[in-house]
Amino acid sequence: MTRAFVFPGQGSQAVGMGRELAEAFEVARLTFEEVDDALEQRLSRLMFEGPEADLTLTENAQPALMAVSLAVLRVLQQQGGVDLRTHATFVAGHSLGEYSALCAAGAFSLPDTARLLKLRGQSMQKAVPVGKGAMAALLGADLEQAQAIAADAAQGEVCAVANDNAAGQVVISGATEAIDRAIALAAERGLKRSVRLPVSAPFHCPLMQPAADAMAEALETVTINTPAVPVVANVTASAVSDPAEIRRLLVEQVTGMVRWRESVLYMKGQGVDSLVELGAGKVLAGLAKRIDKEVGAVSVGAPADVEAFLKTL
C-alpha cells in the first residue's frame, strides 16, 4: 500500500474536536498546550468547549484544525512508530491544511505554524468588508462549467473558481453581487443546485490580495526546512520540496484556486493508492471517493481511529 497523508481545511471544525484525543494521550494534550502557548490564547478550551461561533471565526478555526491534525500525527508517531519517510510518499492539505501538511513534514515548527495560521485567518477576514464578498458551491458543475459561469457572472467584478474539490463540487468566490449572478446563471444552465456557503469572507480569489501581501511578509521571517516527504501544493497540484518554492506557493495560495481534485489524481498517478486523513472530520476521505474510486481513504481523528489505523501498518 502506498499512502499519502492529507490534512483537512476550514469547515471541518466542530466543538469538542481533539478532546477525546487529549484525554487519551498525553502527547496530544501537550501538542494543544504548545499551540496555546504559541498563540498566548486558550485555543484548546475553545476547541473542546466552544462557543461554536468563536471557534468558527477564521482566525481560530485555522490554527485549531492544524492543532488537531498535528496531535493525531504525534499520537501515531508515539503509539505506532509512524514515520512519514517510511509510511507516506506525499503529504497534502486542503487550503489551511497545506500548512498542517508542511508542519507534519517538518518544514515548519509547530509554534510558527500556529502563528502563521492565526495571522492568515485574521488577514483573510480583514481583506474584504463583511457582506462585500461571498462563496457558493456549484453542485453538479465540472471545472470548465464553473469557470464559464464565473467569467460570465463577473461583469467587471471579481468572480473566480476557488476550490475544485471533486467532479460535481466546485466552489466559486468573489464579490457578493457577482456570486448572486453566478447562482442565477447556474440555474439557467441546468445545474443541479447552487448553495451560498456560510463563510465570512471570499477565500481563494483576487479579493484576498491584501492577505497574500501580509502572508508574504510573515513567511519571509519564518524558517522553512526541506520537508521529510514532498508536499503536493494546492496551486500547482504537483510535488514541491524546495523551501523557496514552498514560500512562493503559499503566498499564491491565498488568492489562487485550490486544485484538490487534480492533487488527488496527481498522487494516484505517482502510485498512491490510499489517503490517510489526519484531523477533524471526514471531508477529504469523502471527496476521495468522488474523485477516484480506486483511491482508498481513511479518516483518523479519534482514539478509536488511531487504534484501527495502527493495526493496518
Rank of each mutant, 00 (worst) to 15 (best):
L116P: 09
L117Q: 10
L119P: 00
L119K: 14
L119S: 09
R120Y: 05
R120K: 13
R120P: 03
R120E: 08
G121V: 01
G121H: 02
Q122L: 14
Q122D: 13
M124S: 07
M124I: 13
Q125N: 15
K126L: 02
K126W: 13
A127G: 06
P129Y: 08
P129A: 12
P129W: 04
G131L: 12
K132C: 15
G133L: 10
G133M: 02
A134E: 07
A134Y: 04
M135C: 08
A137S: 13
L138F: 07
L138G: 06
L138E: 04
L138P: 01
L139E: 04
L139N: 08
G140I: 00
G140M: 12
A141F: 03
A141H: 09
D142A: 06
L143W: 10
Q145T: 14
Q145Y: 01
A146Q: 02
Q147R: 15
A148P: 09
A148K: 15
I149H: 04
A150M: 06
A151T: 01
A153P: 05
A153G: 05
A153H: 00
A154H: 01
A154F: 02
A154M: 02
Q155N: 15
E157Q: 14
C159L: 08
A160C: 15
A162C: 06
A162F: 07
N163I: 02
N163D: 08
D164C: 11
D164Q: 12
D164M: 08
N165T: 07
N165H: 13
A166S: 15
A166Y: 13
A167I: 00
G168M: 08
G168S: 11
Q169E: 04
Q169D: 08
Q169I: 09
V170K: 11
V170H: 12
V170E: 08
V170M: 13
V170L: 14
V170D: 06
V170S: 09
V171F: 00
I172G: 02
I172Y: 02
I172K: 10
S173T: 10
G174K: 06
A175F: 04
A175P: 11
T176C: 14
T176P: 09
E177Y: 00
A178Y: 03
A178N: 08
I179D: 04
R181W: 10
A182V: 11
A182Q: 06
A182S: 12
I183W: 01
I183C: 13
I183H: 04
L185C: 05
A186G: 10
A187N: 11
A187Y: 04
E188G: 14
R189V: 04
R189P: 05
R189C: 04
L191P: 05
R193C: 11
S194H: 02
S194L: 07
V195W: 13
V195Q: 13
V195D: 08
L197N: 02
L197K: 04
P198V: 11
P198H: 09
A201K: 05
A201Y: 05
A201M: 11
P202T: 10
P202G: 07
F203V: 02
H204A: 05
C205T: 00
L207K: 06
M208I: 07
A211E: 01
A211C: 12
A212N: 03
A212G: 10
A212V: 10
D213I: 01
A214D: 10
A214Q: 05
A214G: 01
M215E: 03
M215G: 06
A216N: 15
E217K: 14
A218Y: 10
A218C: 11
A218W: 13
E220H: 12
T221P: 01
V222Y: 12
V222A: 03
V222E: 07
V222M: 07
I224K: 09
I224P: 03
P227G: 07
